[in-house]
């Protein structure tokens, strides 16, 4: 008997956690779906979407350029020293371009946007929740999902692919800087190989990833803020926990989703 109990306990615990996780993912999906569908319901909130595009997209441009530049440079550097052993440094362009377009671009863009805009989104919505601003919207017969969440969902879906494209381009030039300018790979070879090796399928795959990541990030960050009041901790502590979970959960889910998507796309 005792043996069975020993086996049973971790199993039930695992089962409980699994059910909780599946329930959470289900709620998250419905939350996203509602926000997404409400974005297509007239009257459209162009002005609010524009403001969110500015906040999520425009204000992330500098950070994205900075990280993309250095990511490209380090790829150029690492790639060069790996390829130089085989005397095929001319393939540096393809190595940098493919890893950027397929992986680094979508993933790092998503993680940078989480750090910059996602945490802010969770905190902003969380504060609105604890200061009863969301309740106030409801008393005025304004659907808070429509007023607060939809514009963010729409803006994220527009911004992520564009920021990813920007990341790819800047990263490519970063690789050129370290590979060609500093280490002397022929620039003509670098760009020609980059151009010839990247196919349309890679670009489409990268964009598909960025769209999925956009959905994951905006859903988790808004969800955590929106349901701050259901936490055990109230007030400022609740908001800080929401913000932390928003960042951690979305980062983890981005990497998990990246693996799953890559498996299907390959």
């Amino acid at each position: 008997m005792a043996q069975i109990v020993i086996f049973k306990k971790p199993l039930t615990g695992l089962g409980r956690e699994a059910i909780l996780a599946v329930g959470y993912l289900g709620r998250l999906f419905l939350f996203f779906l509602r926000g997404f569908l409400l974005a297509f319901q007239p009257p459209f909130q162009f002005d609010k979407v524009r403001q969110q595009i500015y906040f999520i997209g425009m204000k992330s441009v500098f950070v994205i350029c900075l990280t993309a530049g250095f990511t490209g440079m380090v790829l150029g550097l690492q790639g060069y020293y790996a390829l130089v052993k085989y005397g095929s440094t001319s393939a540096l362009g393809s190595a940098v371009a493919l890893s950027l377009v397929r992986e680094m671009g979508p993933v790092l863009t998503a993680i940078m946007v989480i750090a910059r805009a996602g945490s802010a989104m969770a905190a902003e919505i969380g504060i609105m929740r604890i200061s009863e601003q969301i309740d106030a919207l409801e008393t005025m017969d304004i659907d808070p999902m429509r007023y607060l969440i939809s514009p963010r969902v729409a803006a994220a879906l527009i911004c992520f692919p564009l920021l990813t494209a920007l990341f790819d381009v800047v990263g490519l030039y970063g690789g050129y800087l370290s590979g060609s300018v500093l280490l002397g790979v022929n620039p003509a070879f670098y760009f020609a190989r980059a151009q010839s090796s990247v196919e349309m399928a890679d670009i489409v795959g990268g964009f598909l990833k960025s769209l999925v990541f956009a959905a994951i990030v905006v859903a988790i960050c808004c969800y955590q803020g929106y349901y701050t009041h259901t936490r055990a901790e109230f007030g400022a502590k609740g908001v800080s926990q929401s913000t932390t979970s928003a960042v951690v959960i979305s980062c983890v889910l981005i990497l998990v989703a990246d693996y799953v998507l890559t498996t299907f796309l390959m």
Binding site: M128, E132, D135, A136, T139
Partner: peptide
């Protein structure tokens, strides 16, 4: 919705949109 529009609510901590 019709019913909700007949109501107004003044919150204790004002709940103004910051």
């Amino acid at each position: 919705r019709e019913l909700k529009r007949k109501f107004s609510y003044v919150f204790q901590d004002t709940a103004l949109f910051d």
